[in-house]
Amino acid sequence: MQFKLIINGKTLKGEITIEAVDAAEAEKFFKQYANDNGIDGEWTYDDATKTFTVTE
């Protein structure tokens, strides 16, 4: 399945899409990606669109 991350950071904005087995695997990848890029904010997930959003 495809999952999307929308980044609304103070210094980094954009979107990335990955293939993952389930939402838990996608969330783990996205949170590591955000951590690696210094993004720390509020997370939301929309199951209907398979979209995670992080907002700083």
Results as ranks from 00 to 15, higher is better:
Leu12Glu: 06
Glu27Ser: 06
Lys13Tyr: 07
Gln32Arg: 13
Ala20Trp: 04
Asp36Thr: 10
Phe52His: 03
Glu19Phe: 14
Ile7Trp: 11
Glu19Ile: 08
Lys50Asp: 05
Leu5Arg: 00
Thr11Pro: 09
Phe3Lys: 00
Asn35Lys: 12
Ile39Tyr: 15
Asp40Leu: 14
Lys10Asn: 04
Phe29Thr: 07
Val54Arg: 00
Leu5His: 00
Thr51Gly: 03
Ala23Leu: 15
Ala26Glu: 00
Gly41Cys: 01
Asp36Glu: 07
Ile18Arg: 10
Phe29Ser: 07
Thr55Gln: 10
Ala20Arg: 03
Thr51Pro: 00
Glu56Thr: 13
Glu19Gln: 04
Ile16Thr: 10
Lys50Ile: 07
Tyr33Cys: 02
Ile7Thr: 08
Gln2Ala: 12
Phe30Ile: 02
Ala34Ile: 05
Ala26Asn: 00
Glu15Met: 05
Asn35His: 11
Thr49Ile: 12
Glu25Trp: 13
Leu5Asp: 00
Glu25Tyr: 11
Gln2Cys: 02
Lys50Tyr: 12
Phe29Ile: 07
Ile7Leu: 15
Glu27Lys: 05
Thr53Asn: 07
Asp47Val: 09
Ala24Ser: 06
Met1Cys: 02
Leu12Ile: 10
Tyr45Val: 04
Asp46Ser: 15
Lys31Ile: 06
Thr53Val: 07
Asn35Glu: 14
Asp46Pro: 01
Glu19Asp: 15
Gln2Lys: 04
Ala20Gln: 05
Val54Ile: 08
Ala34Pro: 00
Trp43Cys: 01
Ile16Trp: 06
Ile16Lys: 14
Gly9Glu: 09
Gly14Cys: 03
Ile6Gln: 11
Trp43Asn: 00
Gly41Trp: 09
Ala26Phe: 00
Ile18Gly: 04
Ala26Ile: 01
Asp40Phe: 12
Ala34Glu: 01
Met1Trp: 07
Trp43Asp: 00
Gly9Cys: 03
Tyr33Pro: 00
Trp43Thr: 01
Ala26Asp: 00
Glu56Phe: 12
Asp47Pro: 10
Phe3Ala: 01
Ile39Ser: 02
Phe29Arg: 10
Thr49Asn: 06
Glu15Thr: 12
Trp43Gly: 00
Phe3Ile: 02
Ala26Gly: 10
Thr44Ser: 07
Glu42Met: 15
Lys10Val: 07
Lys28Gln: 03
Lys4Phe: 10
Ala24Val: 08
Asp40Glu: 05
Met1Phe: 08
Ile16Asp: 02
Gln2Thr: 14
Lys28Arg: 11
Gly41Gln: 01
Phe52Glu: 00
Ala23Trp: 15
Leu12Ala: 03
Asp46Met: 08
Thr11Lys: 04
Thr17Asp: 08
Glu27Leu: 09
Ile39Gln: 08
Thr55Cys: 08
Thr53Trp: 11
Thr53Leu: 05
Asn8Ile: 06
Asp47Gln: 12
Val21Tyr: 11
Ala24Ile: 12
Tyr33Met: 05
Leu5Tyr: 01
Phe52Trp: 11
Tyr45Trp: 14
Lys50Asn: 09
Ala20Gly: 12
Ile18Tyr: 09
Thr11Phe: 06
Tyr45His: 02
Gly9Arg: 09
Asn35Arg: 12
Asp40Pro: 13
Gly9Ala: 10
Thr44Lys: 15
Lys50Cys: 03
Glu27Ala: 10
Gly14Gln: 12
Leu5Ile: 05
Gly41Thr: 01
Phe30Ser: 05
Gly38Pro: 01
Ala34Ser: 10
Gly38Asp: 04
Lys31Arg: 08
Glu27Arg: 13
Glu15Arg: 06
Asn37Ile: 13
Ala20Val: 10
Asn35Ile: 12
Lys28Thr: 11
Asp36Phe: 14
Ala23Glu: 09
Glu19Pro: 06
Phe29Gln: 06
Phe3Gln: 00
Ala48Glu: 11
Ile7Phe: 13
Trp43Leu: 08
Ala34Lys: 02
Phe29Pro: 01
Gly14Thr: 07
Met1Thr: 08
Lys4Ile: 08
Val21Arg: 06
Thr44Pro: 00
Val21Thr: 14
Asn35Thr: 06
Ile7Met: 08
Gly14Glu: 09
Ile7Ala: 05
Asn8Met: 04
Lys13Ile: 08
Lys13Ala: 12
Phe52Met: 07
Met1Asn: 06
Tyr45Thr: 02
Tyr45Arg: 03
Lys4Ala: 07
Asn8Glu: 14
Asp46Glu: 08
Asn37Val: 05
Tyr45Pro: 00
Ala23Ser: 11
Ile7Cys: 02
Ile16Phe: 05
Asp36Ile: 11
Glu15Lys: 07
Lys28Ala: 13
Gln32Lys: 10
Thr44Val: 12
Thr55Arg: 15
Thr55His: 11
Glu56Pro: 14
Ala23Pro: 12
Thr55Ile: 05
Leu5Phe: 14
Asp22Trp: 07
Asp22Val: 08
Asp36Leu: 13
Val54Leu: 06
Asn35Phe: 13
Met1Gln: 13
Val21Asp: 11
Gly38Trp: 13
Asp22Glu: 10
Lys31Val: 11
Asp22Cys: 03
Glu15Gln: 05
Gln32Ala: 14
Gly41Asn: 01
Gly41Tyr: 02
Asp47Cys: 06
Thr51Lys: 12
Glu42Lys: 15
Gln32Trp: 13
Lys4Tyr: 15
Tyr33Phe: 06
Val21Gln: 11
Ala24Gln: 06
Thr44Glu: 11
Tyr33Gln: 07
Ile39Phe: 14
Gly41Val: 01
Ile18Ala: 11
Tyr33Leu: 02
Ile16Arg: 10
Glu42Gly: 12
Asp46Gln: 10
Leu12Ser: 15
Gly9Met: 04
Glu15Leu: 11
Glu56Gln: 15
Asp46Trp: 10
Met1His: 11
Met1Tyr: 07
Glu27Trp: 08
Ile16Asn: 14
Glu42Gln: 07
Thr17Ile: 11
Lys31Gly: 03
Asp22Ser: 07
Asn37Pro: 01
Gly41Glu: 01
Leu5Glu: 00
Ala23Met: 13
Asp47Leu: 08
Gly41Met: 02
Thr53Tyr: 11
Leu5Ser: 00
Ala20Leu: 07
Asn37Glu: 05
Thr17Pro: 05
Thr11His: 11
Ala23Tyr: 04
Phe3Leu: 02
Gly38His: 08
Glu19Trp: 05
Asn8Arg: 13
Asn8Phe: 11
Gln2Phe: 12
Thr44Phe: 05
Gly41Phe: 04
Glu25Gly: 15
Asp36Trp: 12
Ile16Leu: 15
Asp36Ser: 12
Ala23Thr: 12
Thr17Asn: 05
Leu12Trp: 10
Asn35Gly: 14
Ile7Val: 10
Glu42His: 09
Asn35Leu: 13
Val54Cys: 03
Asp46Ile: 04
Lys50Trp: 12
Asn8Pro: 04
Gly14Lys: 07
Ala34Gly: 15
Gln32Gly: 05
Thr51Phe: 09
Ala20Ser: 10
Phe30Cys: 02
Ile7Asn: 01
Gly38Met: 11
Ala48Asp: 07
Gln32Tyr: 11
Trp43Pro: 01
Lys31Cys: 02
Asp22Ala: 04
Tyr45Asn: 01
Lys50Val: 08
Gly9Asp: 08
Gly41Ser: 02
Trp43Arg: 01
Phe30Glu: 00
Asn35Gln: 12
Ile7Asp: 01
Lys4Arg: 09
Thr17Val: 12
Phe30Ala: 15
Val54Gln: 01
Ala24Asp: 13
Leu12Met: 07
Lys4Cys: 02
Met1Lys: 07
Phe3Arg: 00
Ile16Cys: 03
Thr49Asp: 10
Gly9Phe: 12
Glu27Asp: 04
Asp40His: 15
Asp36Tyr: 12
Glu56Cys: 05
Thr49Ala: 12
Phe30His: 01
Ala26Pro: 01
Gln32Phe: 12
Asp22Leu: 05
Asp47Met: 11
Thr44Met: 15
Gln32Met: 15
Phe52Arg: 00
Thr53Glu: 04
Thr55Tyr: 07
Glu25Ser: 12
Met1Gly: 11
Ile39Met: 15
Asp46Phe: 04
Asp47Gly: 07
Lys13His: 12
Ile39Pro: 02
Ile7Glu: 01
Tyr45Cys: 01
Tyr45Ile: 03
Lys50Leu: 12
Gly38Tyr: 11
Tyr33Glu: 01
Tyr45Met: 04
Glu15Tyr: 14
Glu42Pro: 06
Gly38Gln: 07
Leu12His: 09
Leu5Cys: 02
Ile18Leu: 11
Val21Pro: 06
Leu12Phe: 12
Lys31Gln: 10
Ala24Lys: 12
Lys10Gln: 04
